[in-house]
């Protein structure tokens, strides 16, 4: 039951976040790249302000899977790194926190480039 509820919360919060991004795509002139930059930066900001953690406790993957979580995760990682290493942590923290997803994207991207060939875009 608890699992089911957590899935529903992730679904609803994740869905709402995606709708907010869709509204930015459809109603503003912002390009997808700018929107993603916006979300990841806002993620760091709400992480820094201490809003991200409780949000993630509530919605789980609903906030950690959207790009907001990428930013939130970085804010948390940086904080821990600074506690551990002082100012040096400010430099090492961001990429360390982002390492898993980034390395995965790079490695799988490289493998995909080796294995797959591009196909023409289809209208249907």
């Amino acid at each position: 039951m608890e699992l089911l509820l957590s899935l529903v919360r992730a679904f609803l919060v994740g869905g709402v976040l995606c709708v907010s991004a869709q509204l930015l795509i459809d109603l503003t002139k912002l390009t997808p790249a700018r929107i993603l930059v916006l979300y990841v930066t806002v993620g760091v900001l709400i992480g820094a302000l201490g809003i991200y953690e409780p949000l993630e406790k509530f919605a789980g993957a609903g906030v950690s899977v959207p790009l907001l979580g990428f930013g939130g995760n970085i804010a948390r990682g940086v904080k821990e790194a600074v506690v551990e290493k002082g100012l040096l942590g400010a430099m090492t923290g961001p990429l360390t926190a982002a390492a898993g997803g980034t390395a995965a994207a790079l490695v799988f991207g490289y493998l995909a480039a080796l294995i797959f060939h591009g196909k023409p875009k289809s209208q249907t």
Binding site: I25, P32, G118, K119, P120, K121
Partner: peptide
């Protein structure tokens, strides 16, 4: 050529966008 033009003027062919 659609694919050559997509690459040059827009986004990678497999990029998912609307």
């Amino acid at each position: 050529h659609n694919s050559a033009a997509e690459r040059q003027f827009r986004t990678p062919i497999e990029y998912g966008g609307q």
